[in-house]
Amino acid sequence: MTVRSANRRLITRLLLAAVLMFGFGFALVPLYDVFCRVTGLNGKITNTGPVEQTGVDTQRLVKVRMIGVNNEGMPWQFGPIDSLVEVNPGEMRQTAFQASNPTGRSMVAQAIPSVAPGEAAQYLHKVNCFCFNSQTLAAGESVDMPLLFVIDKELPEHIRSITLSYTLFDISPDKTASRSEEVQMGGSRI
């Protein structure tokens, strides 16, 4: 084999490796989700939808702390009805968050859930959650947003309290202009 053809073969392989690694960078996104599910990294909740009840563990009581957070530029009043809920593992519990839109315009919001400690995320099943859909509120309107959840009986002993937070993001369609474009436009509107 000549050096020239050896080079050609090697370049092809190395370029292919580079392209594969570029793809791998993107593959890290779904891989990361799998990784999160396995390790509970970052408190991403992946257990949603109907769940089979298999009895309640009355020996244990878990404190679930509910938190509502507004992300930047979100003027809604938003928070849990009960900020602390005590439940037995296996017990289905209904609670709700309240939101109201104090502004003079209709807005659309998306709630993003997060759990601390992250390890607990895989044991928190949400049967029904307002975070599955975006929420539209007209000017001055308010709403109760229900949440139905159950904590898995397999929850490790050492976890006695769980925090469930929802962050509200403004996804109104009139907010389509991205921030940097706004800056380019001079941002004259304060």
């Binding site: 507004n70 930047e72 530029g73 979100m74 003027p75 104090p102 921030r179 941002g187 509107r189």
Partner: peptide
């Protein structure tokens, strides 16, 4: 001399209370 600060007071109150989406202006309510 900004149109907000010397213009309609209602709009001025609104932007301070509720912020401006997509910008660094926070809601101060």
């Amino acid at each position: 001399n900004s149109p907000i600060a010397v213009g309609d007071v209602g709009a001025h109150i609104d932007i301070v209370l509720n912020g401006k989406s997509g910008t660094a202006m926070q809601a101060f309510r």
